[in-house]
Design a protein around this nucleic acid. Structure first.
Lengths: 343, 343
DNA sequence: CTGAAAGCGCTTACAG
DNA sequence: CTGAAAGCGCTTACAG
């Protein structure tokens, strides 16, 4: 049915070896033959059979992306960054998302075995033991936003700490004497880093102010509950920094219901810069993460790891900088973006 | 390096043929041997080499998704639906997005050649001529949201017409005597269908009312401009139906700046139900599309086409129903969801 | 029920 | 510079 290398060879009156060499740019072929073969291949619409090629070259020209159960903007931005970088490297992208637990993640990882030259992994279910059990050592991998330590694996993280530190500083600079925090899930790596950023910035710039942390779970409702509690409390904070935007949105609703004006009575800030952030009233000051850049960088690191398997992974995991985006909810005088520098 | 079928065969003291049969569930093998082989394969962590298998079976167990340059929620929801359905069918998912023009789309399509058993295609750049030139007839494909007619290709569409028709009817039912429309890009298939739904509902339920259509491009700014024009016009419409939510959001801003109260002075509705819709003030009445369902259905149709290549495609392209989601901006008495029935 | 052998479509030493 | 041949790791008629 489909046209194979033999058809091209017959038509060009050469051996299949010559066709292979001509089409793969081997120097051991005259320009004239190369031209002739190329034009015949084009006329026949010859496409090399990728499975046959993979079988012999041990390369699939494909990378896999393992992602957790997911919603919204973050995912599409990440994939977009990965996809763009993959195309420019000539790599295909196999995705597997929507695995809600460790077993599903393991199954997905194994299912990709042999179909990809390397893996991009973003999953809360993945730790060192998981990788040892499910990822062959020979398969290069880059982990995104992972707490994993050690030189075993290549890790690429968002600078959650730096972003939270900068935001806390911004709120204090804007003149809000006390800043409270709404934390995320306890076992969540991003949430932990953001809380640490808040705490350390408070210690550095407002050592006498009380550190107040409400518990949340990244969901809108948990932000709402925290907001209600803050609104009622005797010593209401002058500013609230939520560990993500969805909680900030919930908190905003609670403040509105309590008759508190934002930012006049209480300032508010979030983290992530989801699209909703600019459309709530007042618009939400938040920390922007260049997610597509994260995807692109991750893919490029992976491509390097695939090309140079022996390369040692040295030093700390690189961090992707975040930007404080000042909108109306934080009540500062300034407005705009500033890149969060690490402390 | 990697363990192959020969390693399993040697360990089990059988031929590779028997290992293949045992692992693939051929009936021509005793249960006892099957058990023994299976346990040895598991112990050795044997994973069949997918390229080798593809080479002989002519199947890749992979489907490709070709998507245009994209942002936001729609894409992630669609991929989620496709991915879930693919996993349950045992299929892998290769994605290619971010191609901004016809040439890039063609390159992406050809690059997937031979790597997939079928294709899911959503692209404004794809028409009949494009497919004839770039998609081999033997490759099953399902087109999403395409204006393509004829029995050549399998098409799956969102019922834009029915949704717009139902929304227009809802606005009229809510007591708004005149409903204006903000259209999308002229060459956009979704936009055309939505406008048709508006026009036909107006003709059916408010035959004496004026049909007013402002031009837009699906961008927030174009909705803003239309909103300003409506606000100023002598016979201001009582309700505005924007062909998508982003334009409705822009229109809402224009109304707010003009001192018009929504919905008291003018009602407003959009289309898509993007996440922002529920967070603007007032919350936006809109048409909800179950995008994940679209992805799931498309994949299931594709899987069927792959399994039964000869099957004839008969009748009209199936439609995915939409729901009118009533929120505050339309000012009706009722609130909630109703599935849009086709007229 | 089991095995030996052919063959899927490529690439790449090895000769010449 | 070019070709004949081996081989990548599987599956599947074909014998037995």
């Amino acid at each position: 049915m489909a046209v194979t290398i033999r058809d091209v060879a017959r038509e060009a009156r050469v051996s299949v070896a010559s066709v292979s060499r001509a089409l793969n740019g081997s120097p051991a072929v005259t320009d004239e033959t190369r031209q002739r073969i190329a034009s015949i291949a084009a006329r026949l619409r010859y496409v090399p059979h990728s499975a046959a090629r993979s079988l012999i070259t041990k390369r699939t020209q494909t990378v896999g992306a393992l992602l957790p159960d997911l919603y919204g903007e973050f995912f599409s931005e990440l994939i977009r960054g990965i996809d763009l970088a993959a195309r420019s490297k000539g790599l295909h992208l196999l995705v597997s998302s929507s695995h809600g637990d460790t077993n599903e993640a393991a199954a997905a990882l194994r299912a990709m075995q042999g179909r990809v030259d390397g893996m991009l992994i973003l999953s809360p279910h993945v730790d060192a033991a998981f990788l040892r059990a499910n990822l062959p050592e020979a398969v290069p991998a880059v982990l995104l936003n992972s707490a994993l330590k050690g030189a075993q694996h290549d890790v690429l993280n968002i600078d959650n700490y730096g972003g939270a530190y900068a935001m806390t500083r911004h709120l204090l600079d804007a003149g809000h004497a006390s800043v409270a925090f709404i934390g995320g899930p306890e076992d969540n790596f991003d949430a932990q880093q953001r809380e640490r950023g808040y705490r350390e910035a408070m210690a550095a710039f407002a050592p006498k102010a009380a550190v107040k942390v409400a518990t949340g779970d990244f969901g809108e409702e948990s932000g709402y509950r925290a907001g209600r509690a803050f609104a009622k409390s005797a010593d209401r904070p002058r500013a609230v920094f939520a560990a993500n935007d969805m909680m900030a949105v919930g908190c905003l609703r609670a403040f509105a219901e309590s008759g508190l004006r934002v930012p006049d009575d209480v300032a508010l800030a979030g983290f992530d810069d989801i699209p909703i952030a600019r459309y709530v009233t007042p618009s939400l000051t938040t920390v922007h993460v260049r997610i597509a850049d994260l995807g692109r960088s991750a893919l490029e690191r992976l491509a390097t790891a695939i090309e140079k398997p022996g390369r040692a992974l040295h030093g700390a995991a690189p961090m992707l900088a975040c930007e404080v985006v000042v909108r109306a909810s934080s009540g500062g005088k300034t407005s705009g973006r500033t890149t969060a520098k690490r402390a």
